[in-house]
Design a protein around this nucleic acid. Sequence first.
RNA 1: GGACAGGUGGCCGAGCGGCUGAAGGCACCGGUUUGCUAAACCGGCGUACUGGUUAUACCGGUACCGCGGGUUCGAAUCCCGCCCUGUCCGCCA
Length: 472
Amino acid sequence: MIDIKSLRENPQRYIDGAAEKNISVDITTLLDLDEQRRLFTRQREEHRAEQKRISKEIGPQIGKLKSQLKSANEEETLQIESQLVELEAKPIALKTEIQRLDESISTIDPQWKELLLQIPQPADEDVPKGNSSDDNVELRTWEPAGFDLSKSFKENRGFEPKSHLELVSELGLADFERGVKVAGTRHYMLTGNGMRLHQAALRFAFDLIVDSYNFTPTSVPMIIREESMVGTGFFPTGRSEAYHIEESKRGSGHDLFLAGTGEVGLMGMYGDEILDEEQLPIKMATVSTCFRREAGAAGRDTAGLYRIHQFDKVEQVVICKSDEEESRHWHKEMIVIAENILVQLGIPYRLLQCCTADLGAKNADMIDIECWMPGRGELDADGKPSGAWGETHSASRLYDYQCRRLNMRYRDADGNTIFAHSLNNTVLASPRILIPLLEMHQQQDGSVSIPECLQQYMNGLTVLEPTHASSV
RNA sequence: GGACAGGUGGCCGAGCGGCUGAAGGCACCGGUUUGCUAAACCGGCGUACUGGUUAUACCGGUACCGCGGGUUCGAAUCCCGCCCUGUCCGCCA
């Protein structure tokens, strides 16, 4: 959520910011509503103050008269009642007026709030302007020794690469048909060494960020209340992307939603709290299952492990002081961690500076990491894939946008309460990461070598052999 | 799922129609005293919005005693709905 005061002072900044992000939101209407809301609220407060003042003044008199009523004769009763009517006339008039203002405010308020939640955080000055993900800017690439990204896989390795679909099938690592049988489209079941490799990759990433980078290991709920989804900025905009559990339809309770990322639980953890400055930065890592409806992605990436409804992800989050320099510092650090993992996995990658259009509402800046996936991309004349970059990581820098929504603050040395800054980045998401992992480490004989860093998590296994395939 | 009990400031805990933003205590901060620490004493100590003004300094107003609604001239206090927590029973990894 943006700061409404900042919007009042400089609406153009937010109008331009939304336009650059290709997000349409009615800022003019919001400002109108805001104006009305403030006016009515101020009037209400004035009336209320008057009401309290009067009430204090005449309250005791009313009380006394009412107790006199009980022992009064007929004539006295009439007299007392007329006194009461007189005394109560003013506060009753105020009360009516206050109720009228309350109604106006309660009509405006939901619209005001709904709009405010939708105003995107303007992108930073140094974020390139663009219209689509085509305008993202490549910052740098990395390739393992012996692999030249300017050449094809075949030129590098001397044989045509198989796609992860073929590898998975030949090595018996996943069963798509049965996944779909059990759970429907875009579902899968990892089998045998596929499940093992998946767990190994997650465990490797989790251990690395916890042991080498001192992130606090934390578990998160994956079934989430609406407040946390709004607080972390996934709602209202991303509502259609989340699975909805309609508990309210079963009687009591509130609805719940399946989290699309561990970020929701991690960030929600300190919502509505005032932290001590000394507690910052808070660095947390989790591994959790992520659920995505993939609404609007119909027909895209329908085969394989790329775009699926359920996956597991090691996620990193940093909550730090409200300081741009520090935020930027952590952003870089978090990206380095992801890079370290990809280097150890021996997967070529590139860093992409996302342009304004690709940022989403909550980010001021976002760096994606894409891995080289030889089995993806356009098919050539022989039906062979040319390889393509595929997104595996996304590092966001949000200033206080998220903490403001979550009402997460800290107290600084001067005793002020300040909204913290937050950042998040993927550490490793699997099974998507298995795509480049398998495709890059495949060998001419159809086997796949296991990167050294994963072997200890595979009981020392160094290679996946097609002969072991369970082609059942 | 059934039966009770309860939700008040950072924590404990009083209040149960107006004098309560809320007693008292603990914790915390500042000061006095003190060889140091401790103790004692004095003072301070919530958040948000809003007005005086342009500012996190000062003064005023409003809101907040789980959440939402109602009764009342006036609600932490009365009524209704919901949420949450605890205990016991049932079920269960």
